[in-house]
Structures are given as C-alpha cells and as structure tokens.
C-alpha cells in the first residue's frame, strides 16, 4: 500500500500534463534560524525524556524490589555518567516544560507575531536554563 499522502503530490502543469509536485527544499537549503532549532529541540528533548520516564520506573521498581537493586541504581546515578544523564534529564525536562507552555499559548491563539515568536523563544531558553540551575542548587542544598 502506498502512502495516502501521495494523493496530494499529484498535480497538473499549465499545459495539462500530470506531474508529481516538486517538494519544497528544506533542511539542507534553508539557513538555520532560532525558531527552527527551538522547534526541533522540543521534539529531540521529548524523545530524550522517554529515557527519563524509563529511569523513573526503574527507580520505583528497584525500590520495590530489593536493597541490592536499589543501592546499585543509586550508585549508578552517582557516577559521572549517571550525574550527566540526570543533568541532561533535568535540562530536557525544563526545556520541554517551558516550550510546552509556549505551545499551549499558541493553541489559545497567542504569540504568533514574528517578534513575539522570537521573544517567547528567548524567554523559554532563559527560563529552562535558570530552572535547571535552581533545581541542581536545590538538590545540593537538600543533600
């Protein structure tokens, strides 16, 4: 079965010939700009957060299983790689959280002007960075 989207690719030229529509040039041609990067990052952090969700379940299952399983996971998270993963998770979570609010605002019809898009994008980046930092300061203060 062919992709149903193929139906939208059929077009006619001005002299009546049936042709396949040209595809618009994208990533390789367009100059990379901030809004593209923010949009792509929302998806990339979303996929990365799947790893965080798995880790959350791993933590709960280990805690429900045995001291050995729990202590091993706690040790693993304390290694440099574990800490890097936790830091990446925190950053991804705050970015996806803040940019998610930006998406919800768009769903309500707000913030579609070009200057607003750039302003909200910069705000999201700043907020995610600050919240990530605050979270880790709180972690060290709590410990």
């Amino acid at each position: 079965m062919l992709d149903t989207r193929e139906a939208l690719m059929v077009a006619r030229t001005s002299d009546g010939r049936t042709v396949r529509r040209p595809v618009s040039p994208h990533l390789q041609v367009y100059k990379l700009h901030m809004l593209m990067v923010l949009s792509g990052s929302h998806r990339i952090t979303g996929v990365a957060l799947a790893g965080g969700a798995v880790l959350m379940v791993w933590f709960l299952v280990a805690a429900a299983s045995s001291d050995a399983a729990f202590n091993w996971l706690v040790w693993l998270l304390g290694t440099p790689i574990g800490l890097l993963a936790l830091f990446g998770w925190t950053g991804s979570l705050w970015y996806h959280f803040c940019n998610g609010i930006r998406h919800l605002a768009w769903d309500f019809g707000y913030g579609f002007e070009m200057d607003q898009l750039y302003a909200s994008g910069k705000l999201v980046l700043a907020a995610a960075a600050v919240l990530t930092l605050v979270t880790w300061v709180a972690v060290f203060v709590a410990g």
């Binding site: 959350m56 729990f70 202590n71 979570l93 959280f97 919800l104 769903d107 972690v139 709590a142 410990g143």
Partner: peptide, 29 residues
C-alpha cells in the same frame, strides 16, 4: 494537549519530590 496540561502541576510536584527524596534510601522512598 490535555495530558500536557495535567503534566504541568504533576511535573513540578515530581521535581520537588526528587529533591525531597535525595539520599532518602529505600526505606525513605
């Protein structure tokens, strides 16, 4: 959209819980 709305408060609570549970051990959890 509905799940993202629900996740706003739940995620904040989750992050708070993680900080709260730091070094708590299995018994603490």
């Amino acid at each position: 959209k509905v799940t993202s709305f629900a996740l706003l408060p739940l995620t904040l609570w989750f992050i708070w819980s993680c900080i709260h549970l730091r070094g708590a051990g299995r018994a603490g959890v």
